[in-house]
Design a protein around this nucleic acid. Structure first.
Lengths: 253, 253
DNA sequence: CGGGAATTTGACACTCCTCAACACACGTGG
DNA sequence: CCACGTGTGTTGAGGAGTGTCAAATTCCCG
């Protein structure tokens, strides 16, 4: 891993910015979105913020995780490493998404920060007790889990049946939609898409190699479906062209 | 679809066999496993049994489903059909598994009976109301959904990163484990595995073609990992050999 | 400006898909 | 009873799409 610019301690627990939950910008997307002020007050008492730098592990596979958390800023990945080194990313986590496996202290996947990331972390036993005692929390977790299950299954369609080109287009659409969701806006033609991750992460997410990812991006640039600004930024001249090239049918989140 | 032997009405609602929930053989695996007798009594009042024959649709994609159900007997598939005819099976449903998407009347996937199948179906609005009012039910649904999410992600690893050969082995292991689970037994060397589905269904589940499935089965037979009895039955001489050939690492359910 | 990482591009190999023929079981009807 | 059709599965030949390995290029940051 490369040497990083600012040498803050990894997984630094950030005691400064214990902002009030009521003002939390991503609460509507988080597991606590249905909570009332009293419930938020309780969660506030058991939360700590944790900051991560790109590439930094959040939870190792099989590790007994002491906390569960909500992504507040940045992007993280959830992945499985096979014994021979093959890796598959099984989920991307954006602000509001839950990090960790409730009711099971050892996660079957590893969580890694993809960008600079910030987590609102809850002590696991206390959070699980809160879940049991707080219907609004448990219900919201159920909603989120059902939605994630739908998303995972949509992604299975992509992994099992789509071509490399279609996979890339679907990924761009996903990245665009997830970024827009936080601002409650809809995709428009000409919009900018930020690719928050390296070619390697994309490849591992899409079940491809970095070379194939790179080649498909070049091909899509040539065919005009995307306009490449730099390796991490591109424009979508026509949203519907992108969806068509993505094999249609799927609305991935 | 072929003409079937016994021309009973499709999706026949079976009023005869309203067995008592207390005696239900698969209840421990179902959404109602945590319910007490009173709760079971209520569920009993809103349940009907439905029978399906192989290939028969249970819920069409995008259909407003009037019921949610629990698989009682047989196997069903959950799949997505792309506009151009490509199909991806995103889940197999065994006895105890839930059919349908709670809290969303239109399922994003279609459900089809793979074998003769029997469903314990609940009126959707009433079941959802029961979920809201019954913590034991809602909690169990959350547990099941979290487990399914883990399984879906494990399957993503298979779809994205495994070779055709590894996919076949993982599938055999899955079929074996799911069958054994109902009897609370563990896999043993020499055990019989029943393949409940056609080559086409397997291919669509594994992200392969039927020809590749067929060829890999022949190859695994030749290499001794499996012993083929007929197209739907095989023996596993060595469980650990099977797992090794499956790429290791994954415990799929 | 220099060094290392990330990305792109190229040449080639290999897995898996496509298209086609064939085998087999089963049911039907002559 | 056997010929025939249909559905299902197997096998073969050839090719497309990705992966592998290697080199060139760009980017980033000191």
């Amino acid at each position: 891993m490369r040497v990083l610019a600012h040498p803050a301690a990894p997984s630094a627990i950030d005691l400064r910015a214990r902002a009030h939950c009521v003002d939390c910008a991503i609460r509507q997307h988080a597991v606590c979105s249905h909570c009332d002020v009293d419930e938020l007050e309780f969660l506030s008492a058991i939360k700590t913020y944790r900051n991560y730098r790109p590439g930094e592990p959040i939870l190792a596979m099989g590790e007994r995780a002491p906390f569960l958390g909500t992504m507040v800023e940045g992007v993280a990945s959830m992945s499985r490493l096979l014994p021979d080194g093959r890796r598959q990313v099984v989920g991307l986590l954006f602000p509001g998404d839950l990090v960790g496996r409730p009711f099971s202290p050892v996660s079957p996947f590893e969580y890694v920060a993809v960008t600079e990331a910030r987590l609102c972390a809850f002590d696991r036993p206390q959070f699980e007790a809160a879940l049991r005692a707080t219907p609004s929390l448990e219900r919201r977790l159920l909603e989120m889990t059902l939605d994630e299950l739908d998303s995972a299954r949509e992604w299975m369609v992509l992994l099992g049946r789509k071509s490399a080109q279609e996979k890339m287009c679907s990924f761009f659409a996903l990245a665009a939609r997830r970024a827009l969701r936080l601002e409650k806006r809809d995709p428009i033609d000409g919009m900018l898409v930020v690719l928050p991750m390296s070619r390697e992460d994309m490849a591992d997410f899409l079940g491809l190699t970095i070379e194939t990812v790179s080649r498909q991006i070049s091909a899509l640039k040539k065919s005009g479906v995307i306009e490449l600004i730099d390796a991490r930024h591109l424009l979508i001249p026509s949203w519907s062209d992108l969806l068509d090239a993505g094999g249609g049918d799927i609305e991935l989140y």
